[in-house]
């Protein structure tokens, strides 16, 4: 992403909402991630300045937590739940079906930038397993065919 493509007033607003508190670094990055689906590395020098933290701390937080990515991700991030309850109900089959349909592997993004396929350890919707989340929506009781139908909803 080019520096000029970033909505800087929005970034400033996010940092202000957290009172430029360095303890809120992770949440600030999560909010930035909500806009771009990743944290563009271009914002890091700005965070260093505004929060008064070191660049190394920002990288170490960004790489430690799973919800943050420094690489671009798809418009829709599919998180297939791989919690125990979903696992015993066949979550792996859902991941395979989606991977096959999208032509990507877990952790990858489709060439058109629409979908990223990922796994999440448990979304706490165990009774409706197997479950997948697409951005903030939860889809329950999936099987191979309903998982593919789920994709169609977002393709429109």
């Amino acid at each position: 992403m080019k520096k000029t493509d970033i909505d800087w007033p929005k970034i400033t607003k996010i940092v202000q909402d957290y009172n430029s508190d360095p303890e809120c670094l992770l949440m600030i990055m999560q909010d930035i991630s909500d806009i771009y689906n990743y944290v563009p590395p271009e914002v890091i020098p700005v965070l260093v300045e505004k929060l008064g933290v070191s660049e190394s701390l920002i990288y170490s937080v960004a790489t430690f937590y799973k919800t943050i990515s420094l690489e671009p991700r798809g418009k829709y991030i599919i998180n297939v739940c791989t919690g125990t309850a979903c696992h015993v109900r066949g979550a792996e089959k859902i991941t395979h079906a989606l991977a096959e349909e999208l032509g990507i592997e877990e952790g990858q993004t489709t060439a058109d930038g629409m979908f990223t396929l990922d796994a999440v350890r448990c979304v706490g919707a165990c009774a409706s397993g197997p479950v997948a989340m697409v951005n903030h929506d939860t889809h329950g009781a999936l099987n191979r065919s309903s998982a593919l139908e789920m994709l169609d909803q977002y393709r429109k």
């Binding site: 919690g83 125990t84 696992h87 350890r121 448990c122 706490g124 919707a125 165990c126």
Partner: peptide, 12 residues
């Protein structure tokens, strides 16, 4: 930070 996979009472 309810982490145990398969447990969701805290969420509820």
């Amino acid at each position: 930070d309810e982490g145990d996979p398969g447990a969701y009472m805290d969420r509820s």
